[in-house]
Design a protein around this nucleic acid. Structure first.
Length: 834
RNA sequence: GCGGAAGUGGCGGAACUGGCAGACGCUCAGGACUUAGGAUCCUGUGGCCGAAAGGCCUUGUGGGUUCGACUCCCACCUUCCGCACCA
């Protein structure tokens, strides 16, 4: 047709976005009549521009959200901004702009991109964590934790990033460097800091992971388990020889090997060391070695590859054997884990083995692995296998498994130890010496000490006029109007805490706020949370596997203890999407390899961008950006547009053709074939959304269906217009989650009003989707030798008979003897010959 | 070192519980339409042999199980990710 209209994504997209907004299409409120579905993508940090790396996350989420909308779910799909954080302060320093201004202008830009992509967010629920209306509840939660002893101030060794000029939580240290500055080794400092006692929840965090099995990626669960690092063993106290009032404690998971201990090793910064040196003639020499080693240890980035140590000259007594053991300082013993001291069993621990071989300490085998008789003198490596105890006093002959329990119990009986469980997880240090964060609601009073700010004084407002400077202490300390206050208890002059909270506090509970975003009396209404929670599907990057995802699980449990929520886990299902790469590396502003999302929308339209994100790779794998591939997706959408356009013009000429074909005369073969392909594709796409989320082959199937229509041109000669109409309607519906704007436009072209956002998602007709003819592969000795076409459901013998009758197959069988036949109904016949 | 994931055409990737390897897209080639085509439509496109029919080879490597293996088992190689003195 000469007056063919071309696909104009920009016009179509603007039209439907306006329409959706006017109709409040994606606003969701509790509705007892429909099942709820809470779908969430991790909230973005407003860094400036949204690039296609970000968009992948939202394209996946939006496809699922729209599918659920179409299926009749009441979908809660919100978005907000993780808007506190250091980059805003850096921008302030570099461009002399206030962090708030920088942040808000970024939010405006990014929101414009999200709107340009037409995502199905309920914007009424938008939140921004840097607003007092939000962060006052961070303070409120802090106070509730303070009341319960879950927020506490303590002096401890903390990680210090010299770039950020602030403290980092353990979770924020990656390979000994800052998570934001991968080349900057973290330093160690002793500071007084606020901590949240996440360690009180170690066991619950671990146990409740059973509820997440299957719904969360296995590797995330593994990473969290390793991070919590539970290990069960025993604590044993070794008295100092000659002074039984003093002792050194060790933690061990292998108390069954204790008769093989030939030394006791302590960490270089063990608190009892100075006491051991005191009064010794060689004290100066010892302290010199000690200081050398400590300097090294204080820089965790320079982890020594080689084990070193020195003999303190002190002796302790093995409480089991009475044997005297030398006390050594060893650089590989960690002061933060266990008791900061270990028993050294060289025969059964590789680290101890290397240490003892280096320094000539004896090696003694006290557990013989099954079927072995090892000797310490000739041992080439430690053996950590369980076995039978040897040379172990009264325990000799016991199996390791049994000895572990019995010896720990005996240590308890003897009053020198007992069973113990340790964790790797440390308390969460939340103090940050930075400006752009939530002020910690504490006041220091000369007479009352640390006093919590009363609830009715919240929020403690972050002052606007602050000279942001990196100087190792919080910029807030330089704002007298902020610092100087009065004690809430005694009304005397007092000083405010000037550190702000780690921004991971903000993101630990934000998804509850979405359920009741404007509440000014509580963080949220428990009833609203109860309605929407738990989150049915959470989507985000793997980089939060332990940071955000363990903190928010902790918050949920804490909130449950406060009576705010009634579930143990906030997120039922988690999906980690792959990264978008360009030139083999992740797209990022700092690498300068980003493809701005707005560029894609302007050039191809956002529907094309979305389809490309879902088509180019499975959603959990990394995706390499390709300018050529996205062209292909653009072409595909144009093809669909032209197909429907042509059909709708013809229908307009004779509107009767629009009436449904149901009840019409039986379908012709060509019509059946068209309907069959359509319903097969529909089945595939439906199953995929409900199951594996392999959108790439799903979209491939839709493309194939479109090719099918093109291959039958001119369509109207092979099928009645009503049948074509029916098939195109299904095609349009199944395209809707992927290319929603185009789908709504096509839906209108097909004569329907109001778009497809709320469905319906069509049910596929199993009858129509069934093949009535099958192409059966005929193999001879496993090699394909022919094909036969048969009707479905043939008996095995009949299938074999027809296979043997095929002339081509027969020619291969000449002079051969059939040994056996294998039949897969409707699929395959394999003839085994000799 | 330990744990996990992965390895398929020129490229991105399909192949669900073992059953025609390479769907779909990109690239490239040819054709049609056209004043024109970098638009559109059609055809072809893993390698080798062959004019063709057809045959042989091919899913990191080597073995095994099976009528039949990308898929299961064993060993090895490579890449990526996580943990890494956690006692």
């Amino acid at each position: 047709m000469s007056d063919q209209v071309e696909y104009n994504p920009q016009a179509i997209e603007a039209k439907w976005q306006k329409e959706w907004e006017a109709r409040r299409t994606f606003e969701a409120d509790p509705d007892p009549g429909r099942p709820k579905y809470y779908l969430l993508e991790m909230l973005p940090y407003p860094s400036g521009t949204l690039h296609m790396g970000h968009m992948r996350n939202y394209a996946i989420g939006d496809a699922v959200a729209r599918f659920k909308f179409m299926r009749g779910f009441n979908v809660l799909h919100p978005l907000g901004w993780d808007s506190f954080g250091l980059p805003a302060e850096n921008a302030a320093l570099q461009h002399n702009i206030h962090p708030r201004e920088w942040t808000n202008s970024n939010i405006a830009q990014m929101k414009a991109v999200c709107r340009r992509f037409g995502f199905s967010y309920d914007w009424r629920r938008e939140i921004s964590t840097c607003e007092p209306e939000y962060y006052r509840w961070n303070q409120w939660f802090f106070l509730r934790m303070y009341e319960r002893g879950l927020a506490l101030r303590k002096r401890s060794k903390v990680n210090w990033c010299p770039q950020c000029q602030t403290v980092l939580a353990n979770e924020q240290v990656v390979d000994g460097c800052c998570w934001r500055h991968e080349d900057t080794p973290v330093e160690s400092k002793e500071l007084e800091q606020w901590f949240l006692r996440i360690t009180d929840y170690s066991d619950r965090l671990l146990e409740d992971m059973n509820q997440l099995e299957g719904g969360w990626p296995a590797r995330v669960l593994t990473m969290q388990r390793n991070w919590i690092g539970k290990s069960t063993g025993a604590r044993v106290r070794f008295p100092v020889a000659g002074d039984r009032s003093r002792s050194l404690e060790v933690f061990t998971t292998r108390i069954d090997t204790i008769y093989g201990a030939t030394a006791l090793l302590v960490a270089p910064d063990h608190p009892l060391l100075p006491g051991l040196f005191a009064g010794r003639p060689d004290r100066d020499v010892l302290e010199a070695s000690w200081n050398r080693m400590r300097r090294h240890i204080l820089r965790p980035a320079e982890l020594a590859a080689e084990k070193t140590g020195f003999d303190t000259g002190a002796l302790v007594e093995n409480p089991f054997s009475g044997e005297r053991l030398p006390v050594w300082v060893a650089n590989f013993v960690l002061s933060e884990y266990g008791t900061g001291a270990v028993m050294c069993v060289p025969a059964h621990d590789q680290r101890d083995f290397e240490f003892c071989r280096k320094y000539g300490l004896p090696v003694r085998v006290v557990v013989q692995p099954p079927g072995a008789t090892l000797r310490g003198e000739t041992l080439e490596a430690a053996t950590s296998e369980y076995g039978r105890l040897a040379d172990s006093g009264p325990y000799t002959g016991l199996a390791s498994e049994e000895a572990l329990g019995r010896m720990a119990a005996d240590a308890a009986k003897g009053g020198f130890g007992g069973p113990e469980t340790t964790y790797r997880l440390r308390d969460w240090g939340i103090s940050r010496q930075r400006y752009w964060g939530t002020p910690i609601p504490i006041v220091y009073c000369g007479s009352c000490g640390a006093v919590p700010v009363p609830d009715d004084h919240l929020p403690v407002l972050l002052p606007a006029a602050v000279a942001v400077a990196a100087g190792g202490r919080s910029p807030l300390a330089n704002v007298p109007e902020f610092v100087n206050t009065t004690c809430p208890k005694c009304a005397r002059p007092a000083r405010r805490e000037t550190d702000t909270m780690d921004t991971f506090v903000d993101s630990s509970w934000y998804f509850y706020r979405y359920t009741d975003p404007r509440n000014d009396r509580a963080p949220f209404d428990p009833a609203a949370a109860r309605h929407w929670f738990p989150i049915d599907q959470y989507i985000g990057g793997i980089e939060h596997a332990i940071l955000h995802l363990i903190y928010s699980r902790f918050f949920c449990k804490m909130m449950r203890d406060l009576g705010l929520v009634d579930h143990a886990e906030p997120v039922l299902r988690l999906f980690s999407q792959g990264m978008v790469l360009k030139g083999g590396v992740a797209m990022s502003k700092s690498r300068g390899n980003v493809v701005p999302a707005m560029d894609v929308a302007e050039r191809y339209g956002c529907d094309t961008g979305r389809v490309y994100m879902l088509f180019a790779a499975p959603p959990d794998k990394d995706l390499e950006w390709s300018d050529q591939s996205i062209e292909g997706c653009s072409r595909f959408l144009s093809r669909v547009f032209r197909l429907v356009d042509r059909h709708s013009r013809q229908s307009q000429a004779s509107p009767a053709n629009r009436s449904p074909a149901a009840g019409a005369s039986p379908y012709t073969d060509a019509e059946r074939a068209l309907l069959r392909k359509t319903h097969q594709t529909l089945r595939r796409v439906t199953d995929d959304f409900e199951g594996r989320w392999h959108f790439n082959p799903s979209l491939a199937a839709v493309m194939k269906l479109v090719n099918e229509f093109y291959g039958r041109e001119p369509l109207e000669e092979c099928a009645r217009a009503q049948v074509i109409q029916l098939c195109l309607e299904r095609l349009t519906q199944m395209l809707a989650p992927f290319a929603p704007h185009l789908a709504d436009e096509l839906w209108e072209m097909l004569g329907h009003l109001g778009g497809l956002a709320h469905g319906p998602w069509p049910a596929y007709d199993p009858e129509l989707a069934t093949e009535d003819e099958f192409q059966v592969v005929v193999q001879i000795n496993g090699r394909v030798r022919g094909h036969i076409v048969v009707e479905g459901g043939l008996a095995d013998q009949e299938l074999v008979r027809r296979a043997l009758a095929d002339p081509k197959v027969a020619s291969f069988l000449e002079g051969k003897q059939v040994m056996k036949t294998v039949v897969v109904p409707d699929k395959l016949v394999n003839i085994v010959v000799r």
